[in-house]
Simulated scan of single mutants.
Amino acid sequence: MKVLIITGGNIDDDFASSFLKKNHYDEIIAVDGGLAFADRSDLSITYLVGDFDTIDRTILEKYIHRPDICVHQFIPEKDYTDTDIAVKLALSLIKNHHSEENEEKVIHILGGTGSRLDHVLANLQMLKNILDEDVRGIIIDRNNIIEMIRGERVLKREEMTGTYVSLIPVTMELTGITLSGFKYPLENASSHFGESLMVSNELLEEEGRIFIKEGMAWMIISKD
Rank of each mutant, 00 (worst) to 15 (best):
L89W: 13
A90F: 04
L91A: 08
L91Y: 10
L93I: 15
L93D: 05
L93N: 08
K95Q: 14
N96K: 15
N96E: 15
H97S: 13
H97E: 10
H97Y: 14
H98W: 08
H98F: 08
S99R: 13
E100W: 11
N102Y: 07
N102S: 12
N102G: 02
E103H: 09
E104F: 07
E104L: 14
K105H: 11
H108L: 08
H108M: 11
I109K: 01
L110M: 04
L110R: 02
G112E: 00
G112Q: 01
G114R: 01
G114L: 01
S115Y: 07
S115T: 13
R116N: 11
R116C: 07
D118I: 01
V120C: 12
A122R: 08
A122C: 13
A122Y: 05
N123K: 01
N123E: 01
N123D: 02
L124K: 09
K128P: 00
N129P: 02
L131D: 09
L131I: 05
D132Q: 05
E133W: 03
V135Y: 04
I140F: 03
D141E: 06
D141A: 03
R142S: 12
N144M: 07
N144H: 14
I145Q: 13
I145G: 03
E147W: 01
E147L: 00
M148N: 02
M148R: 05
M148E: 04
M148V: 12
G151Q: 10
G151R: 11
V154K: 14
R157I: 03
E158A: 10
E158D: 12
E159A: 13
E159F: 12
T161A: 05
G162Y: 00
T163E: 13
Y164E: 10
Y164K: 10
V165N: 03
S166A: 07
L167T: 05
I168N: 04
I168E: 02
P169Y: 07
P169E: 08
V170I: 14
V170C: 11
V170A: 11
T171K: 09
E173H: 06
E173W: 04
T175D: 13
T175E: 15
T175S: 15
I177Q: 07
I177G: 04
L179W: 12
L179D: 11
G181Y: 04
K183D: 10
K183N: 08
Y184L: 05
Y184N: 06
Y184P: 03
P185R: 11
P185M: 09
P185L: 04
L186G: 09
L186W: 13
L186A: 12
N188L: 09
A189Q: 14
S190Q: 10
S190T: 13
H192W: 10
H192E: 15
G194Y: 03
E195R: 14
E195G: 11
L197S: 03
M198W: 06
M198R: 12
V199H: 09
V199N: 08
S200E: 12
E202G: 02
E202M: 12
E202N: 09
L203W: 05
L203S: 04
